[in-house]
Design a protein around this nucleic acid. Structure first.
Lengths: 238, 238
DNA sequence: ACACGGACCAAATACAGATTGGTGCAGACC
DNA sequence: GGTCTGCACCAATCTGTATTTGGTCCGTGT
């Protein structure tokens, strides 16, 4: 990507004219309520331009995240829908915390392993940032959120669509309100320090491209979480 | 619901004759491998009975949970599919074989481990039966189906709803027609013998309650599958 | 180099026709 | 009267065809 300095171009390129026209159409939302744009061929004739120019403009808008396209379907305003979340919500109700925790124990070590193989330097920097914020949040409610973001980042960096979906499934269940409470009580100061330490060791292993070690520490981390959750559940039952 | 005492009814009601006939048809599984029963009209003419009698019989079998029906679709053996499968099919299109295989390599060893902890004697017997049928099917198309059934049984016996959903996700992708072909070509005689041997060792480990061993052999099994799939894909690319 | 026009492909949709389970009703047979 | 059959109709689904739509490439003109 480079900047072209203002050469004398009295006549704007046709591409830019089309881009501005469509951009205005999108931002001013004067199109059908379903967010559907006219077809590329229709836009071309309406704007008196070629289809290639229209596609160039739409490429720009898509890169900006303003619209999304699907072959055979059309072009739409906004972000593409994610079917994963719906699926997660459906089974969230019929899963108890221990089952979810067991599933995490199966999946997340594998994700950490994949993550170690594929993480770039930027990825590792992001992970460290998230771990720092988790630690900085201390005992507050925000710590839960940063911790969740850290684990989710690992899953995303692992770069496997199916595994990411499986993780999202568990993550969605974990967000259930009624047992977020229980998890919060399990967050004692001593446990918190251990969690932070484990986070750092996981990221170190990922940074060192040591997938086996990353998986192992992740397993240790989740086992710690699970036993504390177990204690909390037992205490509540009495 | 009340029991009618044995009045003298020498001639069995026609309904019962039809019921017994269809029940045998279901339990002996002599119908297509997809578990689909003939249509009600077809059953009526074949059994020389009226459609109402057939429906009465199917009502019984449905109440017993042996079959399930869907208007416009048909009558099928077994349990109705859970909503998971439909949503799994949604993301199936955007996943390639190697990604799916990588996900299997992450999830199925963990499932084998859980399975080893929870399998009953009956469960193990079922697994052995499925492995036998896979072997007996040899190089035929049916071998794929029995193999799939074996892996699915392990996932089910593992007894974790979330993990089962994750497995179903992958299984759905695997069923994609266009690369079932590729997988079939990877099924050379030598590889087949190795697969059968690995199946037996996995089940032995499960039977011995040795989760770690079951996971390890499962990993070996999937690695073998993956490398053969890789070879097949490379061959096709050229 | 840029833009237009055209052609073709693949994915998705739209539509019509056939199939299938769900339901009600009239009549035949014991 | 109860039981079973045959028939007609409905609604959901599948199948196959044609159309639409984005994705891609090529040739031409400016």
């Amino acid at each position: 990507m480079y900047r072209d300095e203002p050469i004398e171009r009295q006549v704007l390129p046709e591409n830019l004219r089309v881009l501005q026209a469509i951009r205005q159409m999108v931002t001013d939302t004067l199109l059908p309520s379903d967010g559907r744009l006219p077809t590329e061929r229709r836009l071309a004739t309406d704007l008196g331009a070629g289809r290639r120019s229209v596609r160039y403009a739409l490429d720009q808008l898509e890169a900006e995240g303003l619209v999304w396209r699907k072959q055979g379907k059309g072009t739409f305003v906004g972000q593409p829908p994610d079917p994963t979340e719906k699926l997660a919500a459906e089974i969230a109700s019929e899963v108890d915390p221990l089952t979810a925790m067991e599933a995490r124990l199966c999946i997340e070590p594998a994700l950490a392993d994949l993550c170690a193989r594929r993480a770039t330097a930027d990825d590792v920097a992001l992970l460290r940032q998230l771990a720092d914020r988790t630690q900085a949040a201390g005992m507050g409610e925000a710590a839960e959120l940063w911790d969740g973001a850290l684990h989710r980042a690992i899953a995303r960096i692992a770069g496997n669509r199916v595994m990411l979906t499986a993780f999202t499934l568990i993550d969605e269940v974990r967000m259930g309100e009624e047992w977020r409470r229980k998890r919060h009580r399990a967050r004692t100061p001593g446990a918190r320090a251990a969690y932070d330490d484990q986070h750092v060791r996981i990221i170190d292993a990922i940074d060192a491209r040591d997938g086996a070690a990353a998986a192992e520490v992740m397993r240790e981390h989740l086992n710690a979480l699970m036993s504390n959750l177990q204690i909390s559940l037992d205490a509540e039952r009495r």
